[in-house]
């Protein structure tokens, strides 16, 4: 099984978000970029599938600028991916997921791939556009919000579930396909120190996509007013707490009649 996992470097969860000087995007100065969230689950799932399907390989591909993109690819290698390709986003500062999908598809078109795995959405912009755009670009079916992704060797197809608003769908789909993952079989593993050290010397392929002009451009990056913490309801009896809470919810927050 040739598995390709696409990942995006995103700011570490601890990052104190700030707007850049032009007010349009996140200030990336001093920010630590990592493999995180749904992408981390996608890598975990790719490795689990590789371990359970003999003769499988995992190729990690990431679109983004230097040096953060190479760093997350090294993290993917340290976790157990066999090969990595950096699609250099130099010159594209749009943060447009459609542009990213086109750049990734350019590389995907030329590599062996039975399964393309991604997180269902990136941990920063949370667009969820790339998996569906890749399906369309590659001419293969795509599914997002996928859980319990399993290979059925007898039926030579993937079986998985998709909990969506209308119910939990079950699917059986032959390769090639694109999966936007919601959850891996288990929590993501952490890399071992020797593997991390070794990954520093691992070769990383680099390609530059044909330049494309993005149709989605950032104009403003804003932080919400800081949450000041909960207003605590003061009470002597549970009944009093309930009455006061219901009153503020109706009269002040107006969340129900």
């Amino acid at each position: 099984m040739e598995i390709v996992v696409c990942v995006k470097p995103v700011p570490d969860a601890e990052t104190r978000l700030r707007a850049a000087a032009d007010g349009k995007t996140l200030d990336a100065e001093g920010v630590k970029f990592v493999l995180a969230g749904y992408d981390e689950s996608a890598v975990e799932q790719a490795l689990l599938l590789k371990e359970s399907i003999p003769g499988s390989k995992v190729h990690a591909i990431a679109y983004g600028p230097a040096p953060r993109t190479e760093e997350v690819l090294r993290a993917a290698i340290a976790l157990g991916c066999d090969q990595a390709t950096w699609v250099d986003a130099a010159g594209d500062s749009s943060g447009d997921p459609v542009t990213a999908a086109r750049a990734l598809a350019g590389v995907l078109a030329g590599v062996p791939r039975d399964l393309v795995l991604l997180g269902k959405q990136a941990g920063d912009d949370e667009s969820g556009i790339v998996p569906a755009a890749l399906g369309q670009l590659l001419g293969v079916p795509d599914f997002s919000c996928v859980v319990d992704l399993r290979w059925d060797p007898a039926g030579t197809r993937f079986r998985f579930q998709r909990p969506v608003e209308t119910g939990v769908e079950s699917w059986a789909v032959p390769t090639p396909l694109v999966i936007g993952l919601q959850q891996a079989w288990n929590d993501p593993r952490t890399a071992k120190l020797p593997a991390i050290l070794k990954s520093r010397k691992a070769p990383i392929g680099r390609t530059t996509p044909a330049s494309a002009s993005a149709h989605s451009l950032p104009e403003k990056f804003e932080l919400p007013p800081p949450r000041t913490g909960a207003r605590l309801i003061e009470y002597k009896t549970p009944q009093e707490a309930a009455e006061k809470l219901v009153r503020v919810l109706r009269e002040e927050a107006k969340v129900f009649p």
């Binding site: 569906a132 369309q136 670009l137």
Partner: peptide, 23 residues
Amino acid sequence: GTTNGRELVGRIAIAWDAAAATG
């Protein structure tokens, strides 16, 4: 704002060559 709505936007961005945004 549903899973299917979001996916359709991602696909139509390509099929119709459109700018796209979700959420």
